[in-house]
Design a protein around this nucleic acid. Sequence first.
DNA 1: TTATCTGTTATATTGATTGTATAACAGATA
DNA 2: TATCTGTTATACAATCAATATAACAGATAA
Lengths: 131, 131
Amino acid sequence: MIISLDLQSESPLYIQLRNKIIEGIASKQLLPGEALPSVRTMAADLGVNMHTINKAYQLLKQDGFIHIHRQKGVVINPDSMPELNKEYLKNLTESLQPLISEAICRGMKVEEFLKISKELYHQLLTGGDQK
Amino acid sequence: MIISLDLQSESPLYIQLRNKIIEGIASKQLLPGEALPSVRTMAADLGVNMHTINKAYQLLKQDGFIHIHRQKGVVINPDSMPELNKEYLKNLTESLQPLISEAICRGMKVEEFLKISKELYHQLLTGGDQK
DNA sequence: TTATCTGTTATATTGATTGTATAACAGATA
DNA sequence: TATCTGTTATACAATCAATATAACAGATAA
């Protein structure tokens, strides 16, 4: 899976990386049990510092998306994915709230918002069908 | 309209304020032409610095949500709201992408995601019907 | 006229976040 | 033994978030 970071983006590099990997899992470009590059390799590939990669990996580990073995390396969680628990749902709602509020202000109808979300959902599921 | 900020939140105060005002417009708690407190008054009300308020107002002005007259003060844009233009739609998509990706990973079906969005949309429209 | 209100601008300071740069460590493996 | 893992510790620079004062121009109300 090819990953690139946007150095011009306002969102931090380690957040971008976290999201790209989650996106990879969602689209099955990254499969359960699949190995990820070591922090040093990934850092070299992306042209950023090792600690930036480590920060992203720690976030993913904390939520249960990946497993980290001190010697074996990093793999996509082979057994399960994090749950749809209350904390996550609260977080999701709080993230959606400002997006939907602004959409309403700009005159977007609920059907239009749902259409965009639905299309995005299916698009992410297949991920453009790249390897 | 009552506004409160969360000092513990990871999102900046001026972003929180921006979002609260947009939420107020969406729910019609803030109406076109309605005046907002001056930067100093709002700062005193919320217990934060004047410049924090000013930063939020500048963002809102830049997008066209409010008008600022150097002497008259700040009012909700009486004539129109910002459009559903390409730039905004691109921005919306980029914001939704990581949320939907994570939802997919956690096993949320598209129907469930759309249901949450739809309910949130209508909930924000009425805003709990407070003044 | 004077005092007070508006947004605006400038400057300085503090603290946290982001990202980089090195270095070292323990354990497994080739 | 050399090399690879993740981990940890420091240090540093740049940026961001937020505060603290202060001053200004213009409008308005006393």
